[in-house]
Amino acid sequence: MPKVNFTLRLAQEYNRLYRSCKTAPLRFGEVDAIVDTILENRDRYEDVSSVVGAPWFFLAAIHNMESGLDFTCHLHNGDPLSARTVHVPAGRPKSGKPPFTWEESAEDALRMRRIERVESWSLERVLYELERYNGWGYRLYHPYVLSPYLWSFSNHYTSGKYTADGRWSDTAKSRQCGAAVILRRLEERGEISFSEPPETPLFYYSTGLVEGSEKLQEFLNGIEGITLRVDGRPGRKTSNAVKKAFGFYLAEDPRNNG
């Protein structure tokens, strides 16, 4: 499946949707019950989180989506831990012998998707990685439907889903609580918090210090395949990263005139 890059425009979309997300009133009790169960098992999520570097609540949201918070199932896809996975992705974990512990399976599922390489876990990056975990089918092939993996049980989702791998229905409805809705409720209950992103400043190419450019470098480091020193000097490497992420160099980069 084609890759969807983490861009500033996509980050802004995630932030807008999350901040305007409202749980469907008839689902309040169900969402709170899910959150209660997650909090009861927070220690287990934190144990795996400490190994792979992802936030514990990111792991918990995936666990709910893939196996309904069942600790006897693989995090990859909900198959039983008594054997390697059968459904996509099949044959996981590749190392070790079944039965697997949930922690072993969870670490394998996250490393398989290279989650440990994510350096910055902003709200927007969390939502991007959640959607990437499930796949880009909605965004690429059914863009009129926001992914229920994120938004089911909210004002951002009504109907439309994959009923099986590669099989689509406009009328089918997800019966699972979306991951973003879980995060929103965790935040409402004071269990997690996301800071508002700073206003995006205008930057220009310079080999010297430019006030505020550290924020640009930190943002760029959250994009897969980009690693910058956060030094406040938006020179050639920072401009290269901007080109990779957005398709253009920084203003005043000499290469803009080449």
Rank of each mutant, 00 (worst) to 15 (best):
A172F: 05
P93H: 01
R139N: 11
R9I: 03
V48Q: 08
T200W: 14
L39M: 15
G208E: 11
N5V: 04
G222R: 06
T23G: 07
P2F: 08
G212N: 08
E188G: 02
D70Q: 07
N240I: 11
A54H: 00
V4G: 00
F100E: 02
M1Y: 10
A11F: 00
N41L: 02
I223F: 03
V48K: 05
G53A: 10
S206T: 11
T72Q: 12
S50D: 13
P98R: 04
F194Q: 02
P99R: 02
Y162M: 06
Y45K: 00
V52I: 11
L10R: 11
R236N: 13
R16V: 11
S206A: 05
L123M: 11
A241P: 00
P2C: 05
P93M: 01
L140A: 07
V118Q: 15
D170G: 03
G212V: 06
G235R: 09
P197I: 07
A33N: 10
Y144C: 08
S120M: 12
K243Y: 15
C73Y: 03
S169Y: 09
G78P: 08
A106R: 00
Y138P: 05
W121M: 09
Y162K: 05
K161N: 11
L10E: 06
L127F: 10
P143F: 08
V88L: 06
N64V: 01
P80S: 06
P201Y: 04
E211M: 03
K243M: 15
E40Q: 15
F100W: 04
N134P: 10
